[in-house]
């Protein structure tokens, strides 16, 4: 295998994994912008997306597109319900308390998934076959292209939502200043609900696209959530473009680290880069310094 084809292979591997991190990172950002919360349950939405999809396609024999949409819808509802039950009833809670609430939420989701589907791993058929495509000696699964494609679709939809729709603009207003937003007649509580629903939906889409490649089980969420969190922070919290770039970057770093340096230390390499970036730019790659100062515990 020539060096060039190795590089292409590592690059595509990294981009595939990175797309998932990016989607999880986007989910973190949406909730963070609306509430200042780091939602520890974000990774569980990814897990739930995959598991619900497996359940729908095996128990009800739903075709792929219907299963995809319905799973995203179900997980979106779960996200919204979680906000209504656990976040909404509280009056002005400190941010750290909210974070622990999402942590408790993630334990409950994990426990429920374990009860419903047991502890074994599940697989899904690939969306369009498993015959790999060849590119200059590298092999790429069609599913990898699906994942990258879904990330691009999510980014496009979000860009449209935030720039051209009223709820999207209202959400941006909330992230800048919730008090001012409520003064101009924006229902902040409803925006918070929307943010949880949206990031649950994005997480679910990521989970569904990812399951055919990696298998899904009840406790897969935490680590994906962690990587997505790193992506969100590396990109600059609250900055969507930053999360996407950072997510892809972390994925590529891990893949090149494993391929060229040492598979044992690949995660350490990625985390080390993360640390250095943060030390040089304390507000992440694309975050503004002021925004970093705004939200504290």
């Amino acid at each position: 295998m020539s060096l060039l084809s190795q590089i292409i292979q590592f690059l595509f591997t990294g981009l595939t994994i990175g797309s998932i991190y990016a989607m999880v990172g986007l989910g973190f950002n949406i909730i963070y912008n609306a509430t200042g919360i780091i939602n520890f349950a974000q990774g569980e939405f990814v897990m739930l997306g995959g598991m619900v999809m497996v359940w729908l396609t095996t128990a009800f024999n739903l075709p792929l597109p219907a299963g995809f949409l319905l799973s995203v819808l179900i997980v979106t509802c779960i996200g919204a319900a979680f906000e209504r039950l656990a976040i909404f009833p509280l009056k002005k809670p400190p941010v750290l308390i909210l974070i622990i609430i999402t942590l408790a939420g993630s334990i409950i989701f994990k426990g429920a998934a374990m009860l419903l589907w047991g502890k074994q791993t599940y697989s899904l058929p690939h969306f369009s076959g498993e015959e790999p495509l060849h590119l200059l000696g590298a092999t790429i699964l069609p599913q990898a292209l699906w994942i990258i494609g879904i990330l691009m679709a999510v980014v496009a939809l979000l860009a449209f939502f935030f720039n051209f729709t009223i709820p999207g603009k209202a959400m941006r207003a909330c992230s800048v200043n919730p008090v001012a937003a409520s003064l101009v007649g924006i229902n902040v509580k409803r925006i918070v609900l929307l943010s949880f629903a949206m990031s649950a939906g994005i997480g679910a889409a990521a989970g569904i696209a990812f399951t055919p490649i990696v298998l899904m089980e009840f406790d897969r969420g935490a680590l994906l959530g962690l990587k997505g969190f790193c992506a969100a922070v590396l990109g600059g919290l609250g900055n969507g473009t930053g999360a996407v770039i950072a997510g892809l970057l972390i994925g590529v770093l891990e893949s090149f680290g494993a391929g060229f340096i040492s598979s044992e230390y690949k995660d350490a390499i990625a985390l080390g880069v993360l640390l250095i970036v943060l030390l040089v730019r304390p507000s992440g790659l694309m975050g503004s310094r002021e925004a970093a100062r705004l939200k504290e515990f």
Binding site: A268, L274, P282, R293, E296
Partner: peptide, 19 residues
């Protein structure tokens, strides 16, 4: 670093020790 950035930095440092 502050806030969530500090959280991630300490997390990364801890994970590196773990690895």
């Amino acid at each position: 670093l502050k806030g969530h950035y500090l959280a991630v930095a300490t997390l990364a440092a801890g994970e590196i020790v773990f690895i």
